[in-house]
Nucleic acid binder design. Sequence first.
DNA 1: AATTTATATTCGCATAAGCGAATGGATATT
DNA 2: AATATCCATTCGCTTATGCGAATATAAATT
Lengths: 111, 111
Amino acid sequence: MRVNLDELELLHSKVCRSVGDVRRLQLLYALEAGSLPVNTLVGILDVPQPTVSRHLSILRQNGLLKTERSGTQIFYSLCDPRIIGILDNMRQVLHEMVEHQSGQLDNPPIE
Amino acid sequence: MRVNLDELELLHSKVCRSVGDVRRLQLLYALEAGSLPVNTLVGILDVPQPTVSRHLSILRQNGLLKTERSGTQIFYSLCDPRIIGILDNMRQVLHEMVEHQSGQLDNPPIE
DNA sequence: AATTTATATTCGCATAAGCGAATGGATATT
DNA sequence: AATATCCATTCGCTTATGCGAATATAAATT
């Protein structure tokens, strides 16, 4: 399938934005080991169910999560587990950056 | 330096959100090969200078870019080039996901 | 069919984010 | 010191995002 570069760039930014929320990041990591139903995720994040459903919906719409129903429950899982590996890489680099005080948050401007 | 996990998680999401904008993504890639002054970046992105400055400021505040003045110009550069490698990994995975039609954007809900 | 459980969606609201136009500040040049 | 260049910031505005409460839907159970 042919993929336009601009479309890929837009997808790239959308996916990054999707991950750019603490709760959604937590949801992705919670699903690292395998699929889980919504109520379990509600327990893990300890936030209201509609909030979890909304974030799950965003992650699904952006192609990061997929769903499968089992009875009344709906299990969410990662579309591609490699995403977690990438997030881990980023986290590791950020950890080192903060540790070494270089490339610090709130980098001072020129003057 | 000791790094709190929650703080790292918050930083992680903030950095992802920073990258989650097409123009900021373009700025990061524009700086892949080395530092560039603002007016050059304005030419590359072809958007008003204040817009570029605002996005550069956000990337700097979140620890992704650093600055150095040379005369009247201010050169921006990546704090850590590894970030580009990570973004490339993600882009590659997204490319494959779209190509293979699995984990597609706008994944259909259960019903 | 009524009830229960699990999940999604709607609603109203508050805050955040992005934009262009205009303005301000710093440095270099004359 | 006046001017020009380069960049940052402010302002007013519009749109997007995130939230909790309430409501709707779907499947299973009785």
